[in-house]
Simulated scan of single mutants.
Amino acid sequence: MVEELLAVAAAAGAAGLVYFAAAARVVKQYERGVVFRLGRLRGAVRQPGLAVIVPGVDRLRRVNMQIVTMPVPAQEGITRDNVTVRVDAVVYFRVVDAPSAVVNVEDYRFAVSQMAQTSLRSIIGKSDLDDLLSNREKLNQGLELMIDSPAVGWGVGVDRVEIKDVSLPDTMKRSMARQAEADRERRARIINADAELQASKKLAEAAQQMEDTPAALQLRLLQTVVAVAAEKNSTLVLPFPVELLRFLEKAQQPLPERRDGK
C-alpha cells in the first residue's frame, strides 16, 4: 500500500514537473511578453522574469524593447532646385507598446523601413540642395516627424533620424568646386584692394607729415640706407636729391631767343 502511494506521488510529481516545464517561460529584462489565449490577446503584458502560461492553450510571444538601429538604403531623387542626388539615412526606434507592435502590424521593422524610405524620398523632393548640405538638423526633425506619425499606431516610437550622406553627380561637384574657387579669388582680390587702399591712405599721411617736416625725409632716407646695407653689405647706396635732377633738367633747356636778334 505504501509503495503504491509512493508510486502515485512520484507519478504526480513527475507530471507536475512536466507541466511546469511546459508552462514556464522566461522573459528577459529587455523583453516584454504578449500572451494569446486561443488566438485572443490577453490584456496583461508579462514583465521580465518567470512567466507561467497554460500549455496548449496560451502562446507567448516575446517583443524586444531595445532601441533598433536601422539604416535606410540610399534613395535617389530630384531636389526642388532640379539637382539629382542620392541620400541615405539611419533611423533609431524602439517598441513602446508591445501588444500594438504584435497585433496592429505584421512586421513593424519592415513597416518602419518602408516608411523611412518613402519619407526620405519625399524630403528630397521638398528640399533645396543647400538645405541638404547645410541645414540637416531641420531636415532630420521633419523626417523624424513623418516617420513617427504612422509609427505611433504600430506601437513604435522613433527616437532619432539622421541623414548620413548626400551624394552628388560629378558634374555638380566640379561646378561647386569652380564656384568655391571663384568666390575665394573674389575675396582675395577684395582683401588686396582693401590693403592697397589702407596703404595709400597711410602713405598720403606720411607724405603730408614729411612735407611739413623736411628733416623727416632725411631720416627716412637714412633708415632706408641702413636697411639696404644690412641685407647686402657689398651694395653701396648714394642718395641723390631729386631737386638736383630738376635743376640739371632746366639747365639743359635752350634759352629763348630775343626778338631783336641778339
Rank of each mutant, 00 (worst) to 15 (best):
E76V: 11
V228R: 14
E249M: 06
V35T: 08
G155K: 01
L143M: 04
I67V: 15
K164V: 15
Y30G: 04
E3S: 11
I67C: 10
E181G: 08
R61D: 08
A215L: 12
F93T: 03
E243Y: 13
G125N: 04
V18L: 12
F247C: 08
V27H: 00
I78F: 08
A111C: 00
A116W: 02
E76C: 06
P55T: 05
Y30C: 05
T118F: 12
S122E: 15
L197K: 11
G153Q: 07
G33T: 06
G77S: 06
R136G: 02
A98C: 03
L41V: 09
A74S: 13
A101Q: 01
V156K: 06
Q29G: 09
Q253M: 13
A22G: 05
G153I: 05
K232H: 12
S113A: 15
R220P: 05
K201M: 12
S167R: 15
F93M: 11
A21D: 03
D212R: 14
I191M: 10
K201S: 13
V96T: 13
V90Q: 05
P256D: 07
A216K: 10
R32S: 08
S200P: 02
A98W: 01
G157S: 12
K232G: 07
G43W: 09
R220C: 09
I163G: 04
